[in-house]
Design a protein around this nucleic acid. Structure first.
Lengths: 372, 372
DNA sequence: CCATCTTCCTTCGAAATCGAAGATAAGGCG
DNA sequence: CGCCTTATCTTCGATTTCGAAGGAAGATGG
């Protein structure tokens, strides 16, 4: 699995290469060396040959896939009140995904131990016998220091500040462990569905507003808070103080939580961001106006960032993203105000990976350590 | 020069490695292979051994340098009314730098041909005999399409739109050619002076406002306009229409040109951004207030970007940068409003590379093609 | 249907790379 | 000063990688 051998596996696992010839082109190795290596990998049961691909004008390639028995990854995406959990094979294909209730406010120890038990559970129920677990990973709704795997200064996660999540999770499994911000995982997951996009911004619109950035095909982590847009000051008439202590943060106007609190004050009862989406779909004017305004504010912030990093696409995901007016007003703001050069081929659309984007992203990032 | 041989040269040229042992560590090659390769490179006159380095507790390394006769690079930085021109050796050290008057408004053909002649001039006057020219490069005060080397939709460069600058320059020299935005070159140049910073924002404050971004040690080009911050909408009382057609762009309030026009209206005569700096240093209150306000506006824009990409440092260069109040109010705005996680170890300071930053950057980027 | 082209993959001798062992050259310390 | 430790660099046989040539399998086009 080490070295160049791992490079080949990773290219196949990530879906970049499907044949020996593609491996040779992408890895830079000579075709003959690739053949030798692939033979070994097939011999050790990690790769399998699976039928023939489509011809590109000559002999058809012999398609390569990661063996389903090469290993499993256990991944999770932690939310405030529930967690999504899944098992993936090494090519990132989900075997099973479940959503279970889980209170993040119970604190890190309880939550992580619960997660470890849930992973064992899933393995017992859905893991094919004899296939080893090769890595575990989870998304966290707060900033994570990439160097240490600790949560750093999260809002809305009492008791988690500076907790060594990766370490605790690693104590349950003697395997590569990944701990990463949830929006970053979403970005890594979406990136697999946007193969031509080198630079990608992925917005997670739910109770909060998160954003992950892929630059040159790699997740940009910065100091652990990269992608944060929720505490940008927005142009606004009123003056609202955000939980961070500053006035007029985007989050205080455009997050799902903010929309819900306005609606509740107006006597329209909502409990989850999805309820807001339902109201919009039912044509409730108060909800539509609020969502449209949120989109405009988010779009104005994106304006600055689009001019600055020139992404190839902006992907909108999260529980508010099905609301049509949200993305429409984001589009309007960005296309109106950005430089033509920056918007010329810019695509702004909803998620291609769906609700499992973060789990897929966890798999994608875990592969790098598992096949190192 | 090809392949792995070039990798070693590049590591030495970029200043990352100074001995065979360092080369082995950084290149990933075995120490024995490095020795062989280095021997060849010394044999072919590209590398030279130069005394001994300092011991790290054992035998002292034998220091390696690029031979001064390995080659030369001719680089330029084009401004509106003058150009900086220089010759560098392959390790990026300037042999000579000159500033010459040059009107960019004369159009691309005239300007580029003039530049080619100026390069020949410099070579004749300062080029050591027998040392070959190995590459040419220039900075342009406008967006450059990285794929084609064409200028794209520049403001203030009449007649240059879509002109194939790289092609025209290449017609004079059958060598690798680099054409890049001037702020991007500054960023690449500064990066050499900030070796520990993986993510760097470099601001060029002159008549206009430019910005270059290094992400993960590499220049981020985006679609050619990456780093643009001059057309961000700022919060402001009055309403000024920018040359781009939108209202309240940063450039319309905080660029050197904007400051100069206000001062001239007030009867204080200024002709160049440096005159504004001089007024500030003389304690003229109108100038100081204007510069401070410009810094605040720039700082507020940077706030969004710092939260978003978490740079390790922000470098302020350009002809306005010597004005103390400018950087002071940028700092104040950023430190006040950004997330603590993003500003914890963030350094904001003036250029380390000085006025030749763009030329050094051109050399640094050119090396990649010259030693490919 | 057959010649020709393209692409994919393998074979095999030549060349590059590795890595373990050793030689060389310091600094530190009793 | 002699001895130990650390680090740099070289030697040399074993291994890996390359690349040119060729075989295999399909597309193309008369």
């Amino acid at each position: 699995m080490r070295g160049a051998q791992g490079d080949l596996l990773r290219l196949v696992a990530a879906g970049h290469a499907e044949s020996r010839a593609e491996l040779a082109r992408l890895s830079g190795l000579a075709a003959s060396s690739v053949s030798l290596r692939v033979e070994e990998l097939i011999g050790s049961g990690l790769l399998v040959e699976e039928g023939a691909g489509t011809s590109r004008g000559g002999r058809r390639p012999r398609r390569l896939r990661l063996s389903p028995s090469a290993g499993l990854l256990a991944v999770a995406d932690l939310g405030a009140h529930h967690a999504r959990l899944g098992l993936l094979d090494l090519s990132g294909t989900p075997l099973v995904v479940e959503e279970r209730p889980c209170e993040i406010a119970d604190g890190p120890e309880a939550t992580i131990d619960w997660m470890a038990a849930a992973f064992e559970d899933l393995l017992a129920a859905h893991g094919p016998p004899g296939v080893p677990l090769r890595g575990v990973g989870t998304g966290i709704p707060g900033p994570v220091d990439p160097a240490t795997g600790r949560v750093v200064a999260p809002s809305r996660m009492p008791g988690w500040n500076n907790f060594p999540v990766a370490e605790r999770l690693g104590a349950h499994f003697d395997l590569p462990v990944l701990v990463e911000n949830d929006a970053n995982l979403m970005a890594a997951g979406e990136a697999r569905s946007w193969p031509k996009c080198e630079t990608l911004m992925v917005l997670k619109t739910g109770s909060g507003i998160g954003c992950g950035v892929m630059v040159n095909g790699a997740l940009h982590r910065g100091r652990g808070a990269a992608g944060d847009i929720s505490h940008v000051r927005v142009r606004s008439d009123s003056s609202v103080t955000c939980s961070c202590g500053h006035d007029d943060c985007l989050e205080a106007y455009a997050s799902g939580a903010a929309l819900m609190s306005v609606l509740n004050e107006q006597g329209i009862e909502v409990r989850r961001p999805a309820d807001v989406v339902a109201l919009v779909e039912d044509g409730v004017p108060e909800a539509t106006a609020l969502v449209r305004n949120a989109g405009r504010l988010i779009g104005e912030v994106l304006t600055v960032l689009v001019n600055f990093i020139n992404p190839d696409a902006i992907v909108v995901g999260g529980s508010l993203s099905p609301a049509e007016p949200l993305i429409a007003s984001i589009r309007a703001a960005v296309y109106e105000r950005c430089l033509p050069l920056a918007t010329r081929d810019l695509e702004i659309s909803t998620t291609r990976s769906g609700p499992d984007a973060a789990l897929l992203g966890a798999g994608s990032l875990l592969l790098d350590s598992v096949l190192a």
